[in-house]
Design a protein around this nucleic acid. Structure first.
Lengths: 184, 184
DNA sequence: TGCAATAGTTTCGACTCGCTACTATTAAAT
DNA sequence: ATTTAATAGTAGCGAGTCGAAACTATTGCA
């Protein structure tokens, strides 16, 4: 089996795994897209929680992301806040109910990963991450890394400073996902 | 980072990869489900090409699978054949047009996999396959292996014999996916 | 013979998804 | 300073997924 055949097989396996995972309702009352959006919002800093950012992260359009977020808001899992600075933009914050839903929901997939030898798990996590980053680079998309590891981040007492957005950052800002992230 | 955290991360990476892959339209005029169903039908033997089997493979319901297959039939990519033996059941065969669509469509994901060191690719393919099989076993689902590797398969001149379905098999039957497959 | 299981379909409601068209706001160019 | 272009978000459309439930038509049992 050569590499190209492997590539096809891997593509199919990834599709199948995500189907098997989606078929199980570990995600409570949410469909896969809604859960993914909610999980993203919970890990993104306050500069990265708009419909556009979610659309970028989920590799979909602003229209679709907008609807998904409206659905989450209807279910009281996120709150809508209009920005003061830029009156066009909106920020969504995860509510208490929303966070409760995200508390490590177990799934067959998680269980099965836990049973793999830790060496295999390392390899798997590493190579999947490599694949995601490589695809994003290929499409010149955002990498969605952690703020603190960005080249625009400058450490300061009690947090840091972003030289791109030109704003001071508190500790939690700097530990969350940022849409503007660029590797150092 | 412990194993449970890894499990969550891997689950998210798989979801994200399949989204990134789905967002690209390497699959022509088909959506991801339709493409997956078509690809399955092209690799399944004549005993494994019904709506129920597709539903099992895609981890969805018969209703949904039925609709997906009707959509493919409308597009002339598969043909419907009613069974003589069991008048309830239907078999779908991939048409020439259908096969043409499946010819190794390139994608960012394939390209990126090809760039990984072959050692990593082996590990990735292996562990993903392990995960799929483990989940299926956990849910007592079908493994969808190749006919020839099944414990009900007996090699014979020009093909083989299935001791479960009690039918003679030609060469191509035995090289395709079978719904009844059980590891030897 | 009669009843339960099976194969497939249909319909419903909620939703995804890409798309286009549209409003409001902000930024850039003249 | 004013026009123009870009950006953020939304609404509506059509095709389709998805689970669930209700519904035929067969087939298999007891």
């Amino acid at each position: 089996m050569n590499d190209t055949t492997h590539a096809l097989a891997i593509r199919e396996l990834i599709d199948r795994l995500s189907r098997l995972n989606a078929a199980e309702d570990w995600n409570g009352p949410l469909n896969p897209s809604q859960f993914a959006a909610l999980a993203y919002l919970a890990r993104a800093n306050r500069f990265s929680r708009s419909p556009s950012h979610v659309a970028d992260y989920l590799a979909t359009t602003r229209g679709t992301a907008s609807q998904t977020l409206k659905a989450l808001a209807r279910k009281k899992l996120i709150n809508e806040t209009r920005s003061e600075a830029d009156k066009r933009s909106i920020r969504y914050d995860v509510t208490g109910d929303g966070r409760a839903l995200l508390d490590e929901p177990a799934s067959d997939l998680s269980d099965v990963i836990d049973e793999l030898p830790s060496e295999t798990v390392e390899c798997l996590a590493g190579s999947l991450k490599t694949l995601v980053l490589a695809i994003l680079r290929k499409r010149s998309g955002r990498s969605f890394g952690i703020c603190r590891s960005c080249r625009h981040f400058a450490p300061q007492a009690g947090g840091g400073y972003c030289s791109l957005l030109e704003v001071p950052l508190n500790k939690s800002d700097s530990e969350e996902i940022c849409h503007e992230h660029e590797a150092a």
